[in-house]
Simulated scan of single mutants.
Amino acid sequence: MMPDDPFSNRTEDFLNKALKAGVGSLPVVGSALAEFFNFVVVDPAQERRDDFLRETMERLVALQDNHDQLSAEALRSNEAFQATMLQAARLATSTASAEKRELLQNAVLNSAIGTIDENVRQIFLEMIESMTPMHVVLLKFLSNPKESPEAVASAKSIMMGSMEHVITAALPKVTEDKELFRRLVGDLYRFGLTTRDSFGGMQSGGDSLLNPATTQIGRGLLNFIERPD
């Protein structure tokens, strides 16, 4: 017989039980502290996990008519999908970002629909764990700056300038904190997702300021986290 809650007794529950036991063993205040910890940390984390799993499965069911790979029989034999689901659920539990949880859902669905090398899949999930939605927004822009009307208008108005000016025109919130922006750029370059570690250098204006700056692995990651149809 199937349990009432198909998301109970997951791997995360064993971790939560261990944490509860550790807090509960503290002298004097252990019991009260454990109750407080469960209420403010453990229970909400489990709710995020369960919500993530339910929403992912709802999206999967909605796509089944368009993809034979999403049948129950196909998914049962798809180890990449199963591994991605488990890893993504763990990551979803530990993030407060709804945008990041959606990216993780996309990764789960794409791992089911397509094929991906296991090494690449693991690397992509490690990257996603370290990245913020702002990283992804910048990476998407750098994959095709010409898709942004603001970027195109900015590039055409500049005779000599930097690509950072064009990025600012398209993504002002990404560049308003210069220190944070430099960190984002550096992270993407360090991950091997982009071809440049800085966009502040002067160059001629026009189309030269709209050249893509993503690597093959960067484009692959974007495909992995793109919302599937």
Rank of each mutant, 00 (worst) to 15 (best):
L70H: 09
S71H: 13
S71R: 13
S71K: 13
A72R: 14
E73K: 15
A74W: 12
R76G: 13
S77K: 15
N78F: 05
E79H: 15
A80T: 01
A80Y: 13
A80D: 15
F81N: 07
F81G: 04
F81T: 01
Q82V: 04
A83Y: 12
A83F: 10
A83V: 02
M85R: 14
L86G: 10
L86C: 09
L86A: 05
Q87K: 12
Q87Y: 12
A89G: 07
R90A: 12
R90S: 13
L91V: 00
A92Q: 09
A92V: 03
T93M: 13
S94V: 07
S94W: 14
A96F: 15
S97T: 03
E99T: 02
E99D: 08
E99N: 07
L103Q: 02
L104K: 06
Q105L: 05
Q105T: 03
N106Q: 06
N106P: 11
A107H: 09
A107D: 10
L109G: 01
N110M: 07
N110K: 10
S111D: 13
A112M: 04
G114H: 15
G114K: 15
I116S: 12
D117R: 00
D117I: 06
E118C: 04
E118W: 06
N119L: 08
N119R: 14
N119F: 11
V120Y: 14
V120D: 15
R121S: 04
R121N: 08
I123G: 15
F124R: 14
F124S: 11
M127H: 15
M127T: 08
M127W: 14
M127N: 13
I128T: 05
I128A: 10
I128N: 14
E129R: 07
E129P: 09
E129Y: 08
S130P: 09
M131Q: 09
M131F: 08
M131G: 05
T132D: 14
H135R: 04
V137S: 12
V137N: 12
L138Q: 01
L138W: 00
L139P: 08
K140R: 05
K140W: 02
F141D: 01
F141H: 04
L142M: 00
P145M: 03
K146S: 05
S148F: 00
S148Y: 02
S148H: 02
P149I: 04
P149N: 04
E150I: 00
E150C: 01
V152P: 11
A153S: 08
S154G: 10
A155R: 03
I158D: 12
M159I: 10
S162Q: 07
M163R: 04
M163N: 08
E164C: 08
H165G: 14
V166L: 11
I167M: 02
T168P: 12
T168W: 12
T168M: 11
T168E: 13
T168L: 10
A169E: 07
A170C: 06
L171E: 00
L171T: 06
K173I: 06
K173V: 07
V174W: 10
T175G: 06
T175A: 06
T175F: 07
E176M: 10
E176S: 09
D177M: 06
D177V: 03
K178V: 02
L180K: 13
L180C: 12
L180G: 12
F181D: 02
F181M: 01
F181I: 03
F181A: 02
R182P: 12
R183E: 14
V185E: 13
G186C: 04
G186L: 04
L188S: 00
F191A: 00
F191T: 03
G192D: 09
G192F: 08
G192A: 03
